[in-house]
Design a protein around this nucleic acid. Structure first.
Lengths: 334, 334
DNA sequence: GTGAAAGCGCTAACAA
DNA sequence: TTGTTAGCGCTTTCAC
C-alpha cells in the first residue's frame, strides 16, 4: 500500500502538505493540490484505515454478536444491519456465539479492545436461560454502547429493538378462533427463549378468553427429531383443526405432516407460523405467516447504534423500539 | 480503555517496562512483572488492537464477501469460516454483495485499505454473468491474498475451494436410473451460476448415457413464482417419475407439490435435491439430499487463507481443494 | 503556501 | 534490570 510518506518523497514536499492537499485544505496552493491528487490517483492511494482509527480513536466498525447464523430470521437481521452499516460508512465484524454464553462473552471481550465502536447483539440461549447479564453491563460501562434485538435482557440499560411477540400470537390465535376452530394447538421449539415464552402467552391468552377451550402445547427440544415429534402429536390429537407455530420450521413441518395424513388444508385444519417468504414456499398450500420484518429490525438497530455513537448519547438515555409483525394470509387459513 | 501509559504512570515505571512485563519478557525483574500484571488485571487492561495492527502491519482480520446471506448454503459456509477464523485468533469482516458486481467491487476496495489481511469470497451472480475478474486480480497484485469458494473464477490465480458439482448430479441421476425411473427431470433456479451449469451437465451426461432418454430441464428465474412454475411443469409432464433439483428449494417445493397432487413418494416419483439437514425436514417424506458440507468448505477456505497469510506463500503457488458431496438417502427415493 | 513536530498506543532495538 | 527512542500512517497545531 502506498503511504503519504512515499507520495511526499516522490513529490518533494512534506507529508503534511500531501495530507492537507488530499483533504482539500484551503491552505495548500491549487497547483500543488493538483500534482498531489494526480499522483495519488496514479498510485491508487487509500488512507490507511488502521492509522486513521488509531488517530481518531474510532474504528467505524460495529461488532455484531449473533447466536446462530443458520437461523433465517437472525441471518436476515444481519443482512439488515450490514446494509444500514455500509450505507453509513461502517463495517461489521461478526461473531457467532452459537447459543453459548462463553462464546458470547469471548466475542464481547475480544472486540472490546478498540476493534469496534459499539455492539449489536441478540442474546445466546444459554445466556437467557442462566440470566447472565454482567458482561453486557461491563461492556457498556467501558464506554461501548450496545443495541440488543429480539432476545433482549430487560435488566440491561441499553437501546433495544424488539418484536411484538405477545400480540402476534394473540392475534393469530384470534384469527383461527374467528374461523370457528375448536382445537387449536401451539407448537414451539424455542421455548427456552424469552420470545418463545411471550408467543406462548399470547396464544394462551386468546385461548383462555374463549372460556371453553384449554391451551394445548407441544414443546420440542433442540435435540428432538422434529418431524417425528410433530407426527406423534398429530396422531395423538386427531381432532386438531388449528395450529399456531412459534418458530420457523414447526409450522412448515406441521402443515406438510397434515397434508401427508390426507387432511385438507385449510378446510380440515388451519396453520399459521412464523416464517419468511421463501420459507412459506416450502408448503403446499402456501403457509399463512407472521412476518417479523427482520431486515427492518436489523436496519433499525444499526441506525440506533450509529446515532448513539455519533452523538455521544448519554448511556442512561435509552430507547426501545417495537417493530410490529404483520400477518400475511396465504392458503393455509380460510 | 486503559493504556500502557496510564499503567506506567501509576507504577512509576516506563511504558516499555510495562509492555515487556506484560509480554513476559525475561528482561524484567520478577517483582516488577508481578506488580505490573496485578495492576493490569485490576484495570482489565487489553492491548489496543488498532495500535497493534498499525505497528505490526497486520490486522488478524479476514474480509469475507458473500453474495447472499439468506442462502442457507452460503450462511453455513460463513459459519465455518467464522469458526475456523476464531480458532486461529482472526476476526471476520463481512460484506454482502447481494449478487451485485458493483457492491462486490466496493467491498473489496473498502477493505483493501489495511482493514484486512486477505479475503475469502464467492462471486456475485452478476460478476459471473459478466465474467468480470479484474478487481480480483488487482486486489491480489496489491498483496492481499484471496481464497474463492463455490462460485470461483478459473482465470484468477488464487486458492480455491469447490464442490464436485458435476459428479454430484451425475451420480444422483444414476441413482434414479438404477431405480428404473423413465422420465427424470432436472429443476434449477441457479442456471446463471457456474455451479448450476455444472450440475446440469452432470445430469445431462447421465441421461444421455442411457441412449434412450432425453434431458428434460426446468429453469426457474429469480423473479418467477417458484411453486407456480413447478406446478405447471408437473401438470405438463404427468408421467414424471424422478426429479433432480439443483438448488435447495426446488427439491423441497417439487416434492411437496407431488404429494399435494396425490402422488406417492417415492413409489410414484423419486426426488433428490441439494439441501441441508434442517431443510430436509421440510418435506414429508424426508428429502433424499446431496450434502455439500458447507461448514467444511468454509473452514477449509479459512484454513488456506490463514496458512497463506502466515507463511507468505508466493502468489503464484495456488491450490484448489475439492470437497466432495455426500448423498444422504432419506425417504424420497426407493 | 508549506513544513516541522507532536501524538494516537504499541513494540523493540539500543543505551544506560 | 530498566529506560529512551524511533517508528508504524495519519491529522493537526503551530511556526515560518
Amino acid at each position: 500500500m502506498v503511504t503519504l510518506k512515499q507520495l511526499a518523497k516522490e513529490l518533494n514536499v512534506s507529508i503534511s502538505t500531501v495530507s492537507k492537499a488530499l483533504n482539500n485544505s484551503t491552505e495548500i496552493g491549487g497547483e500543488t493540490v493538483k500534482r498531489v491528487k494526480e499522483l495519488a490517483e496514479l498510485y491508487n492511494y487509500k488512507p490507511n484505515k488502521v492509522a486513521l482509527s488509531l488517530k481518531q480513536n474510532k474504528t467505524k466498525t460495529i461488532g455484531v454478536i449473533i447466536p446462530n447464523i443458520l437461523n433465517h430470521f437472525l441471518a436476515k437481521v444481519l443482512f439488515g444491519i450490514e446494509r444500514e452499516a455500509t450505507k453509513n460508512g461502517y463495517n461489521i465484524i461478526t461473531c457467532i456465539s452459537n447459543e453459548s454464553l462463553d462464546k458470547e462473552k469471548e466475542g464481547l471481550q475480544l472486540l472490546a479492545n478498540g476493534s469496534v465502536d459499539g455492539f449489536i447483539l441478540s442474546m445466546a440461549e444459554e445466556t437467557q436461560v442462566n440470566n447472565e447479564i454482567d458482561h453486557f453491563k461491563r461492556t457498556i460501562s467501558q464506554g461501548l454502547p450496545i443495541v440488543m434485538f429480539d432476545r433482549v435482557a430487560h435488566d440491561v440499560l441499553c437501546d433495544k429493538v424488539i418484536v411484538d411477540d405477545f400480540e402476534s400470537t394473540y392475534n393469530a390465535t384470534k384469527v383461527l378462533l374467528a374461523e370457528n376452530r375448536k382445537k387449536i394447538a401451539f407448537i414451539s421449539n424455542i421455548n427456552d427463549l424469552s420470545v418463545g415464552k411471550l408467543r406462548e402467552r399470547g396464544y394462551n391468552k386468546a385461548i383462555l378468553e374463549t372460556g371453553t377451550m384449554e391451551p394445548l402445547v407441544l414443546k420440542i427440544k433442540k435435540k428432538d427429531d422434529h418431524p417425528k415429534k410433530i407426527k406423534s402429536f398429530f396422531k395423538k390429537h386427531k381432532d386438531l383443526d388449528g395450529v399456531i407455530a412459534a418458530d420457523s420450521s414447526s409450522g412448515i413441518i406441521g402443515l406438510n405432516m397434515a397434508v401427508s395424513f390426507g387432511l385438507k388444508v385449510p378446510k380440515d385444519i388451519s396453520v399459521i407460523g412464523f416464517a419468511s417468504k421463501s420459507d412459506s414456499y416450502h408448503t403446499v398450500p402456501r403457509l399463512t405467516t407472521i412476518r417479523q420484518h427482520a431486515k427492518t429490525i436489523g436496519a433499525k438497530a444499526a441506525e440506533m447504534l450509529i446515532h448513539r455513537i455519533q452523538n455521544g448519547t448519554p448511556s442512561d438515555k435509552v430507547v426501545t423500539k417495537i417493530v410490529k409483525t404483520t400477518l400475511i394470509s396465504n392458503k393455509s387459513t380460510l
